[in-house]
């Protein structure tokens, strides 16, 4: 077995990279939510002065990336790799943004799990000594996602209680080999799990088994339990997906009910009419970047497990009656280098 592997799905990074800087940009609705004060930029409207929502999302992606680079006192040419993606077909937002950023680019698609997917790969590349600086960026936009996956915005449809609201937001994280907490110490890569859920208005139920499986694999591989973490943060399971995950893990003998929070549940308040909570690539990126990392710096949390969760569906697969596979990738974020 490779030197640094722990069990079946987890690796312990030999040289844990740090999150050197970060930037978050969100839409108006997210800015009005309970975490509004933590975000770096809150947009006035959904278009941000652009002609289309797609252009607006692309600009959010670029600006977040540039902001994270500038904050670390670097230039785009200093960055070795850009890892990133988004929710749109052919990850077009990430591709177009990479066109103008001019950084060697790996485009990734893991639906809403893209954040931890890109952080996992970025951290491995740095730890292995192939890069000094890696930028990880993901974004989503309510209007672009809605028109691709669901109905036109002005169509008078009712959303069921399990429906989630795609977060308008972009988050960028600059990873480096510096000695500056927080560090990424472990990576658990998820398997694609499908329990046959077909309801596209219930992504939480489709993703919960994947989240539970990855958390379980992480605990088993590292031979640690929930107590090793101050917080377990999932990306966008929503209110019901979170409950399902807790129940599924209880069956496996792990009680995480007191420390599992979900970014999709945190970003909006109850009166914002988002039903089960937020979703999208941007959801875990902006909540983790703006809120969780801030709390870690303030010393509230010392060690957390971050899982972005993705529902790997396409409009074609849904229409053909295919069930919705889920995936979740976990990274351990630690204020100590371990």
């Amino acid at each position: 077995m490779a030197k640094h592997r722990l069990g079946g799905q987890t690796i312990k990074l030999e040289n844990p990279p740090c999150i050197l800087s970060r930037a978050t940009i969100v839409g108006k609705k997210e800015g009005q939510g309970p975490l509004g004060e933590y975000f770096d930029v809150v947009l006035e409207d959904s278009l941000w002065g652009e002609k289309t929502w797609e252009k607006a999302e692309c600009r959010m992606y670029q600006e977040a990336a540039k902001m994270a680079i500038t904050r670390a006192g670097k230039q785009p040419q200093d960055i070795n790799y850009l890892f990133g993606g988004d929710l749109l077909n052919q990850i077009i937002t990430a591709n177009l943004a990479a066109r103008s950023l001019g950084i060697p680019f790996f485009g990734l698609y893991g639906a809403c799990s893209t954040l931890t997917e890109s952080m996992s790969l970025g951290a491995m590349v740095i730890s292995a000594g192939y890069a000094d600086l890696v930028l990880c960026v993901t974004s989503s936009h309510f209007c672009t996602a809605e028109r691709q996956y669901r109905f036109p915005l002005e169509m008078g449809t009712q959303r069921p209680p399990t429906a989630q609201w795609t977060v308008t937001g972009a988050g960028a994280f600059l990873l480096s080999n510096h000695m500056k907490p927080p560090y990424i110490t472990h990576i658990t890569t998820g398997k694609v799990i499908d329990y046959g859920i077909t309801d596209t208005n219930n992504m939480g139920a489709a993703m919960a088994p994947a989240a539970a499986a990855t958390i379980k694999a992480h605990f088993e591989d590292t031979q640690q339990g929930p107590d090793a973490y101050d917080l377990i943060v999932t990306g966008d399971l929503g209110r019901f997906g979170r409950e399902l995950t807790i129940d599924l893990l209880k069956k496996e003998g792990y009680d995480i009910s007191d420390r599992l929070i979900d970014c999709g549940c945190e970003i909006y308040s109850k009166d914002q009419d988002v039903h089960a909570g937020g979703s999208g690539c941007g959801c875990s990126a902006v909540v983790f970047g703006a809120y969780i990392l801030r709390k870690m710096e303030e010393g509230v949390y010392k060690r957390i497990l971050l899982l972005s969760t993705g529902a790997l569906l396409s409009t074609t697969s849904c229409q053909q009656g295919e069930s919705i596979p889920g995936i979740a990738h976990a990274v351990t974020i630690d204020m100590d280098r371990g």
Partner: peptide, 13 residues
């Protein structure tokens, strides 16, 4: 089992 469990657990309109 999971699908039945989800059906039972999910809030109805």
């Amino acid at each position: 089992e999971y699908q039945i469990y989800v059906q039972r657990k999910m809030p109805k309109s």
